[in-house]
Simulated assay, not measured.
Amino acid sequence: MDRLVYTAMTGARHVMEQQATVANNLSNATTTGFRAQLDTFRAVPVVSEGLQTRAFVVDSTVGADMRAGPIQTTGRALDIAVRDQGWIAVQSADGSEAYTRNGSLKISENGLLQTTSGQTLVGDGGPIAIPPDTTVMVAGDGTVSTISTDFKPGPANVLGRIKLVNPDPKGLVRGDDGLFRQLSGTPAENDPAVRVVDGALEGSNVNPVDSMVNMISLARQFEMQMSLLKNAENNAAKATQILALS
């Protein structure tokens, strides 16, 4: 009985963890630039004196679905979407460099170009400062320029270039703040091949229909594990009755 209980318990616990991941993905189905989280598990055979007919479920690695989401046109000058592969470099709360696909930008009270979540964008020469009373434009290569709105329009004033990177997806890990970082901890190199689309945002790559189907499938798997635990309880009760008769 104990063997069956522990085997079914590991399966049920990890099914619940998968349900939590699917629920988190589903709640971010409309989050700009969100990458769906993927759980990976593996079966480990239980080594014993008998036949290796049992296996426990253990965590393997937690990754992310790196497929690009749909690009939606907004017409807003401070909205940019990364085309195909690539990331926008930002400065996280602890000062380290992190990466995001959320290109919804704003100008902070101090005049710095930031994401709407409050992370300052990293430029070629550091943070990009936007002067007041100007119209901001972002080119396809990430170059940020402005035109004054106080006087007669003149030539654009180039302020800098947003750092766009394209590191190996296998070397990226998602942090608790939702931003991605390199496993090595070192900043990624600037990639001039990464392009952005202005006046647009990238949507989440979560498919709500697939997530709902996955949740139903996981619920059925959890019920199966609970049935195994119920069978173990019944077997123990029957064994107790037989021993009492003898």
Rank of each mutant, 00 (worst) to 15 (best):
L112D: 00
N102M: 00
I107N: 03
Q91L: 13
A98F: 00
T30N: 13
M9H: 14
A64N: 08
L4F: 04
G11F: 10
E109N: 00
V47Q: 13
V90S: 02
Q85S: 15
S92L: 05
M9P: 09
I71C: 06
I71W: 11
R3V: 06
A64Y: 04
M16Q: 07
A68Y: 09
T21C: 14
R13I: 15
L51G: 06
K106D: 07
A68W: 11
L51R: 11
N24H: 13
V15W: 14
N102Q: 14
I80F: 11
R42V: 00
Q72M: 15
A81T: 07
D94I: 03
R83P: 03
G75H: 07
R54A: 15
A36G: 05
A12G: 03
S27C: 11
V46N: 02
W87P: 05
T21K: 12
A8P: 01
E97A: 12
I71F: 13
N25H: 04
A68Q: 11
T7M: 14
S60C: 01
Q72G: 11
N102G: 09
V62D: 02
R83W: 04
V57N: 06
G63H: 04
R3T: 06
F56W: 12
E109Y: 01
G75Q: 05
G50T: 02
A89Q: 04
S92H: 08
V57K: 10
R3W: 00
F34S: 07
D59C: 06
R83D: 05
D79K: 07
A20S: 13
R13T: 15
R67I: 09
T73M: 09
I71L: 12
W87T: 15
L78H: 02
I107C: 06
N24F: 10
Y6F: 15
V44W: 02
S27R: 15
A8V: 03
A64T: 04
T53L: 14
I71M: 12
Q72W: 01
V90F: 03
F41Q: 06
A89M: 05
A36S: 07
Q114E: 05
S96I: 07
E97L: 10
Q52A: 04
A29L: 15
I80P: 02
D2I: 13
D39V: 00
N110D: 08
A36R: 03
V22T: 08
D39P: 00
V58N: 11
D39H: 04
H14K: 01
D59V: 09
M66T: 13
R13P: 15
D39E: 01
N102S: 05
